[in-house]
């Protein structure tokens, strides 16, 4: 357990700087957005205010998953941690990062909502995947799930890249693109994705989304595990 704690401490110290920079930019953009809105309102413009995007949070999670894996796997092997402990620690890091990101995102959204309401603006969220979500908990939870899925997907990509190299990754990409040429494949894939999205609609949609995200998380780690267990330090 101590090794996992040390592992998480390493992630905390390693990610702290980029995390602080990211959220400083997000909060600065938010503050600037409010100032710009006030300026235009004073000039008589009346329109719906569209504000910060969950997409940025998801992208941060994804990039973080990819970069951290490639950076920290050799480092941790050098520190004498087993690959199994590394994978376990990295999975916890994925979850904690997504959770913290979504909580801060929710706080930012609440702050914006309060500010725009106080200033008397019509306010809408930009890029909110599930516009029907009203509650703070639901909003945080969905943000968490989406960020987690992106993070774990890019961790998977990073693990393939680390183990097999860039050419192999390109090969997979090319294979997927080629498969799309087979009649019916594209429709089947999009049909499947559509049915997933539709099953997440409605009042209790987040429960389905939770199950899908959990399954996706486990599936990705089922692939990451053997890749990481056989990864070696690069020459």
């Amino acid at each position: 357990m101590n090794r996992i704690k040390s592992h998480l401490k390493m992630h905390y110290l390693n990610s702290k700087k980029s995390f602080v920079i990211f959220w400083s930019i997000m909060f600065a953009i938010s503050a600037l957005g409010i100032l710009i809105s006030i300026y235009f309102k004073s000039r008589g413009y009346e329109s719906v205010i569209i504000t910060n995007s969950i997409v940025a949070v998801v992208i941060f999670g994804a990039v973080s998953g990819m970069v951290c894996y490639n950076e920290t796997l050799p480092y941790m092997l050098n520190m004498g941690i087993t690959r199994k402990d590394f994978i376990f620690g990295f999975a916890i890091y994925n979850i904690l990062l997504s959770l913290i990101m979504s909580v801060i995102y929710t706080l930012l959204s609440i702050w914006e909502w309060l500010m725009y309401k106080l200033l008397g603006f019509n306010y809408e969220h930009f890029g909110q995947f599930f516009s029907g979500v009203k509650g703070i908990f639901e909003m945080t939870w969905i943000c968490f799930l989406v960020t987690l899925c992106a993070t774990v997907l890019f961790t998977l990509i990073a693990s393939i890249y680390y183990k097999k190299g860039m050419m192999f990754l390109f090969g997979i990409g090319a294979l997927i693109m080629l498969l799309m040429f087979i009649p019916g494949v594209t429709q089947a894939v999009f049909g499947f994705l559509e049915s997933l999205v539709l099953s997440c609609a409605g009042g209790k949609g987040y429960i389905m989304m939770t199950l899908y995200s959990l399954a996706f998380f486990l599936l990705c780690y089922l692939i990451i595990y053997p890749l990481a267990r056989t990864s070696q330090i690069k020459r």
Binding site: N14, E71, Y75, N78, G80, I81, T82
Partner: peptide, 22 residues
């Protein structure tokens, strides 16, 4: 994959192997 054995080792390499932003 043996934590007990690995805990006995510390290796310092010429290329550092430290995290760049730490």
């Amino acid at each position: 994959e043996n934590g007990r054995a690995l805990r006995n080792i510390c290796i310092v390499k010429e290329n550092g192997m430290f995290l760049k932003d730490v």
